[in-house]
């Protein structure tokens, strides 16, 4: 049981896909202009990651080794298309803002990375736990980056004004702000580790 719990919790912080393994950086930079977009992206990624981990783990013994990567990609692309269409139908505003990056979940290194590193070697149950943990870790990272950027760059959180009367630093929701926020967050995490 404890090892199973570990599969679930390791992705949250110690092996956080963004802060530690540094995978899936493009969406982390691109969709974190607001917390709402970040949640849309995070939840979509969790859905794809969990299901792809389970499916790939289930077929891992059937698929010949040589063509496994194309097979994985087909499974992932199928799941991404489902998410893309669902989002476009029910959350058109999010889909409009981050649609390209929803499509690009196909090539998100986290998904294929977990498929190769974990799902291809473990049973579906463990793969699901791994997927949930990694997905939530990804979501946590997105929430941190987007929280900082939305407050500093737009003076808002979930669309509500945070400090009335304060004029936000608009550049933080633009491209430079994304790179700087992530860079400083990574440095901050490294600093807290060095102190221990």
């Amino acid at each position: 049981m404890t090892t199973q719990l570990k599969e679930l919790t390791k992705g949250l912080w110690e092996q956080n896909p963004i802060f530690v393994i540094a995978l899936g950086l493009c969406p982390t930079l691109a969709v974190t202009t607001s917390v709402r977009n970040a949640i849309g992206m995070g939840v979509s990624t969790i859905f794809v990651l969990v299901l792809s981990n389970v499916l790939i783990s289930a077929v891992r013994t059937i698929v010949p080794d040589k063509i496994r990567i194309p097979c994985y990609i087909v499974i992932i692309a199928f799941l991404v298309t489902v998410v893309d269409l669902v989002l476009a139908a029910y959350f058109p505003d999010i889909s409009k803002a981050i649609g390209l990056f929803i499509k690009l979940i196909v090539v998100n290194c986290i998904i294929l990375g977990r498929a190769e590193a974990f799902a291809a070697k473990n049973n579906p149950w463990r793969s699901m736990l791994d997927g949930i943990g990694m997905g939530i870790g990804f979501l946590i990272a997105l929430l941190m980056v987007s929280g900082i950027r939305e407050v500093l760059g737009a003076n808002k959180l979930f669309g509500y004004v945070v400090f009335p009367g304060w004029r936000p630093i608009g550049v933080m929701v633009l491209a430079p702000g994304a790179f700087l926020t992530l860079g400083l967050l990574l440095g901050w995490k490294r600093l807290s580790e060095l102190k221990h």
């Binding site: 633009l174 790179f179 700087l180 860079g183 400083l184 490294r190």
Partner: peptide, 16 residues
């Protein structure tokens, strides 16, 4: 603490 990835991101931010 900034060596490697963090400073690369910060540099990318300044380039941006």
């Amino acid at each position: 603490p900034l060596r490697g990835m963090p400073i690369a991101f910060i540099t990318a931010g300044l380039l941006a």
